[in-house]
Design a protein around this nucleic acid. Structure first.
Lengths: 217, 217
DNA sequence: ATTGACGGACGTACACCGTACGTGCCACGC
DNA sequence: GCGTGGCACGTACGGTGTACGTCCGTCAAT
């Protein structure tokens, strides 16, 4: 007597749960079925195959982005907020992040963030082509940042101090690394992310100014 | 009569070859052994397990970066060159790129690029901590860019035009996407990469100016 | 020269994986 | 009453990573 009749959302939720608990490697159709107390092949009545299931996982995680867009705020603040929203879901589903960025999703799941971002950039005065370029640049930076974050803490396990690794390098061959061993081994991801984001925001801000000046001329 | 006696580099080379020919999904110990004309378990005399083999693949690919660093050039040009060198290996081993960025490598393989980059930034006048932050930002951007490039062309197969996908969205729900469908569906990766890199270079250039001014004050 | 140890190539075996296919149950429209 | 279609499920097949045991060539010590 299954209280709930095994639907696609339930399967996806179980998959996300499993990934967060035991990592992406632990995912198998048998394991998900066992967690749901269900036969393995029953899953295939709702999901065509494992790849599609993982796509659905990515889609679901991505659609969990919460936008608190304030149309009255400065456009730079809106850009900042949207970038942070992107990063926050990665903190909510840390183990799933690798799954999300690994599979390129050509579905409509990530479309709402794209729409919002483009609208913000257009309202800031950027042209269409330029807005797309800027958006792609931001996405690249965000994805790369998240990849490092989840890579360095794949299990949130004891972050075995890699400091020793950096201090063990040959000072003659790698003088800079040797001097900066402390800075290289520690990493405040939040501050790091904000630093890069601020640089990007200011870069496109000055680019907008130049564009406006050129228009006036 | 094995002409060459099956060494670890030979195994890694076979793995890279296989990945480039048939994609990362085709990699299996049995398949690699077959390509080498060798029994499966013989591989384990040189490689502890499959994960270590893939780590070695990442390490080997990464160590193939060619640096043509010109110490006399402007520091911005040196940064540009190093970023491009990073991207070029991804073009040389397109299918391996996902493997490289997927596994976080804490080995000494990627250390030389790090050393060069830090030296360049330090010589440009950046402080130690700031140089590390800037380097991390660049790496995030580059990794994110490469991930999009290899994601969009996982097999270099016919890039089934996703234009239709963008044009099919509801214009009422996604007006910006609808208007910019053409820009979103086409992507000149090279130009896109250069655009973002230029923005980053100029951003840190103005940051350096501000820092210098503050020092003078 | 004989022997012993040893490293590497290999086959077998096991647990697990994704999933194609067939079977049975149950709720429904006629 | 009777199809009929959807859904849960079991079985089975080909593939995977790898632990373990076996065999054999080489080389050091006796």
């Amino acid at each position: 007597m299954p209280a709930e009749p095994l639907s696609r959302p339930r399967i996806v939720a179980a998959a996300i749960d499993l990934i967060e608990r035991e990592g992406a490697d632990a995912v198998s159709m048998r394991r998900i079925a066992a967690d749901l107390g269900v036969g393995v092949m029953s899953l295939y009545n709702h999901v065509p195959n494992k790849a599609a299931l993982l796509d659905a996982v990515a889609e679901t995680v991505l659609s969990g982005i919460e936008f608190t867009d304030d149309p009255d705020a400065d456009w730079t603040d809106r850009v900042r907020m949207q970038a942070r929203a992107f990063r926050q879901i990665a903190h909510h589903y840390p183990r799933c992040t690798m799954v999300v960025v690994s599979r390129q999703l050509q579905s409509t799941a990530g479309l709402l963030p794209v729409e919002r971002a483009l609208a913000t950039l257009r309202s800031a005065g950027f042209g269409g082509e330029e807005a797309v370029r800027i958006l792609r640049m931001f996405i690249a930076y965000i994805v790369g940042s998240l990849l490092r974050e989840v890579g360095v803490t794949p299990t949130f396990a004891p972050v075995h101090n890699t400091q020793a690794d950096f201090e063990r390098v040959d000072p003659a061959l790698f003088p800079e690394i040797n001097v900066l061993a402390a800075e290289l081994s520690s990493c405040d991801h939040e501050a790091e992310f904000e630093f890069g984001m601020e640089l990007l925001v200011q870069a496109i801000a000055v680019r907008r100014e130049h564009g406006n000046e050129r228009e006036k001329k």
